[in-house]
Design a protein around this nucleic acid. Structure first.
Lengths: 110, 110
DNA sequence: TCTACATACATCGTATGACTACATATGCAG
DNA sequence: CTGCATATGTAGTCATACGATGTATGTAGA
């Protein structure tokens, strides 16, 4: 009942997912692994956050999905960026940078 | 029904408020003005966000309030950091820096 | 005078979205 | 045959930023 903590700042998950998909298609599980890797083990995206986010992004037309084999003999749903997704990523990237800069201006003011 | 946009990332408002109170007590309206100023006109905290946040912070014991005269002959509620608030600020500052660093690691990975 | 604006506080309802917990299934190693 | 990593998903909960709205006052200007 106390100390409900959000690991990720709301709004940044989409950005991370879109960015992670730029080199090529990945399945959900792989996306989480890759974010964990590139964030040097600091950002552990939970499955209860990840899959809803993927469905959301797909509904918005920012990513596409396709069932394919996953290297080991298993099926997995591979997501890839659409043109709209690439555009959205550019926008969110810019927004994040400007937002972080703004915050830092406030934090650096004495 | 579409394009609901959050101006501030959830979780950063408290940090901004606490930071803005470090030089001394301010009333709500003044806090918003000061954030707007120090963010170089980029972060405009809405009143519907600000006052609930102040009440929340006070409930948590991170800030104190006191009705005082506001320079012009008007009464205003002045908020100031408590010891717990100062400690919280240090923690949130650290958290923000580490979080921003993590995001950037992901964004800088090709 | 009266009008507008900046100052100043506050609440309600809504939407978003990240989380925990849980449910399901498979391939492989021991 | 047991456990683990892989893999997808949903239900319910919670925090919180927002727009809209309401109140009130001091001051400047027409």
């Amino acid at each position: 009942m106390e100390g409900k903590k959000t690991d990720l700042l709301q709004g940044t998950l989409d950005l991370l997912i879109l960015k992670t998909l730029t080199p090529g298609a990945l399945h959900g599980y792989g996306i989480a692994q890759r974010i964990l890797l590139t964030s040097r083990e600091t950002l552990d995206v939970q499955q209860g956050s990840l899959y809803p986010a993927l469905h959301r992004l797909e509904r918005k037309g920012l990513i596409d999905s396709e069932w394919k084999e996953s290297g080991n003999g298993r099926l997995a749903k591979f997501y890839s960026l659409t043109r709209a997704g690439r555009k959205q990523l550019a926008g969110e990237l810019d927004q994040w940078q400007r937002y972080a800069r703004s915050i830092n201006w406030v934090l650096d003011s004495q």
